[in-house]
Design a protein around this nucleic acid. Structure first.
Ligand SMILES: [Mn+2]
Ligand SMILES: [Mn+2]
Ligand SMILES: [Mn+2]
Ligand SMILES: [Mn+2]
Lengths: 158, 158
DNA sequence: CCTTAATTATAGCAACGGCTAATTTCTAGG
DNA sequence: CCTAGAAATTAGCCGTTGCTATAATTAAGG
């Protein structure tokens, strides 16, 4: 509340430094979590749909090479989010399931929100894949409220 | 156009694989551009406000160490976005100015959009710092239209 | 002019997220 | 039962983004 004092006098003043640092820090943290969230969400989708999540399927869906997936899965296992059985598929731990469910719901809301705004489905899909990881709880609730207001709790009620 | 055929029969089917790959690819590309955009935008802000952009100021604003900034500036210089004068500040090339202006405008629109949605300014600042990099042209125009509709071209008219 | 403090540069480390190439292991068809 | 092909593993490479510690340079004051 120091630099803010004269902001009203100087409309071109820089934003408060401490606040900006906090924004950048938060964004860096979100960035580190992005991949993990995408992986567990995708694994949950594959399991729910086909019964199993194999490295090849994950790699094919993400558009990366299979050893890239293998390395990431080791990290997820070390983090306690998945269980690996050699030459079998991977499975989510309770913690992994919880994160996957949270990520999936948030992703769906962001995508539905963009669609409710009038964005094309294709663009909404692409943009939400990145935006989702940077949406705070407060913003997510605003998105959800907007979707409900527009769509009247239709569809899967998000 | 293969998996899509039976999507209508199975409401819980996975999204089209090709489309999902494209979303992930696009998001990875956006991720690579994030830091560059934040740097040139911040450099432009510092120059516009204080006349120069020094490594120490950039580092302090970003919340990272000074050698981290030094390394990134080398990359920006190699990419033709800035000019460095040893032990002087850094300056934007025409290309750098162009990218900075584009990034700044997009950032402002995203932040104003979140505020127009009813998000608190603090949260809007934090979330927009990450979201901005994943907003396509189509989505940006929708955001801009929404802000204008709500605010009636007030303020700096974004 | 000289010295000191601030700033920048450089060296070297680590984690992450990609990749290719080669090897190992499993599974299914014959 | 054997074997071919698919899948997973392992090894090793690179670029990015962060860090600390240290050296070099500049700018300013006395
Ligand atoms: Mn997602
Ligand atoms: Mn995503
Ligand atoms: Mn920005
Ligand atoms: Mn940003």
């Amino acid at each position: 509340m120091k630099e803010n004092a004269d902001v009203s006098n100087n409309p071109t003043a820089l934003v408060d430094a401490d606040a900006q640092v906090e924004s950048f820090r938060q964004t860096r943290n979100n960035r580190r979590a992005e991949l993990v969230e995408d992986y567990v969400e995708l694994i949950a989708d594959l399991i729910d749909h086909g019964g199993e999540a194999r490295q090849v399927d994950i790699a094919q869906r993400l558009g990366v090479a299979q050893p890239t997936v293998a390395k990431m899965l080791k990290r997820l296992a070390a983090d306690g989010l998945i269980q690996q059985r050699r030459y079998r598929g991977v499975f989510l731990t309770d913690e992994g399931k919880s994160l996957a469910e949270k990520s999936r719901e948030r992703h769906q809301i962001v995508e539905a929100f963009l669609c409710a705004l009038g964005i094309s489905l294709e663009t909404a899909r692409i943009d939400s894949e990145g935006i989702e990881h940077h949406v705070s709880g407060e913003t997510l609730e605003a998105f959800r409220a907007f979707v409900i207001e527009r769509n009247g709790l239709a569809d899967t009620d998000v």
